[in-house]
Amino acid sequence: MTTALVRDGDRLHGDALRAPLAVGGVDAVALASRAARLAGRSIKRESKSAGLELTVRCIDLTTLEGADTPGKVRALCMRALHPDPDDPGVPPVAAVCVYPSMVPYAVEYLGDSGVHVASVAGAFPSGQSDLAARLDEIRGAVADGAHEIDIVINRGALLSGHLDVVFDEVAAAKEACGDAHLKTILETGELGSYDQVRLASMIAMAAGSDVIKTSTGKLPVSATPPVALCMAEAIRDYEAQTGRAVGLKLAGGIRTSKQALGYLAIVAETLGTGWLTPGMFRFGASTLLNDVVLQMRFRATGRYARPDDLPVD
């Protein structure tokens, strides 16, 4: 099933592509400057309230630990349904993200609440096992009821220039997902440059990803404003070339409301407000939720809230 994907100058060519795909370059200094400016937008009052609620609605509440148990997943699911136990007005999050072995439990606990079950699969977080095993893991998670599958790209193949391998593996994962949404993690902290981030974004989208995602959260460097902007620009340019709108998920290291609002500004001003929905945008996070809820309580009462009053999950 190898489909040659080659890069010729600025363009990707391959049998699987309907037309050559322009990749485009990135200048790191100017990118970082623009990202910092967007992330520094001053979000106040109604805009802030809207941004905080939107953040909650776009969170993939995540637990990806070796020590995860059904009990832990149950607690997380309860939290996903009721982000602020004292305020039923705070909406549920978008999804709960777990390892494949925890999918049946999450499916049970979340029921028909509308909160999705997302599962990492495909030898997360390294991706270093044979393709067949990775695809089996995807099929298993989907069979167990996962609505969304988060996989990693083959960074080794990308960095050694085997773009066709990256493409084919993502395409195979997409096929294995069936009706489930495929969220493809680039693990930008390992890619070395924004040019590579852009290239990886284009390949992942061309191979059929429904969402491209920054990071596994397992590296010291995860989502950053320049990476978010770089991927958002790639999504926008991919849509301009192909007409297909791909979602964005930012994961890892996003802990505060202020960071989240900055990322929303990056998305709003790069992709437009059409992307500010749970269908097109996600935060992969765990501790972020508590900070957002604390901010919402402050906005509701005018008093700073006590972090210990919130659940630990």
């Binding site: 937008r41 001053s42 979000i43 106040k44 009052r45 109604e46 805009s47 309230s49 809207a50 941004g51 609620e53 939107l54 609605r57 776009c58 909406p91 509308g114 609002l261 929303l264 500004a265 709003a268 001003e269 407000t273 059409g274 992307w275 500010l276 929905t277 749970p278 269908g279």
Partner: peptide, 16 residues
């Protein structure tokens, strides 16, 4: 739900 999110997005991006 999508309507709500869309409205939130617009309100956010207006930057009061």
């Amino acid at each position: 739900a999508r309507d709500v999110a869309a409205r939130l997005g617009e309100t956010f991006a207006d930057y009061v």
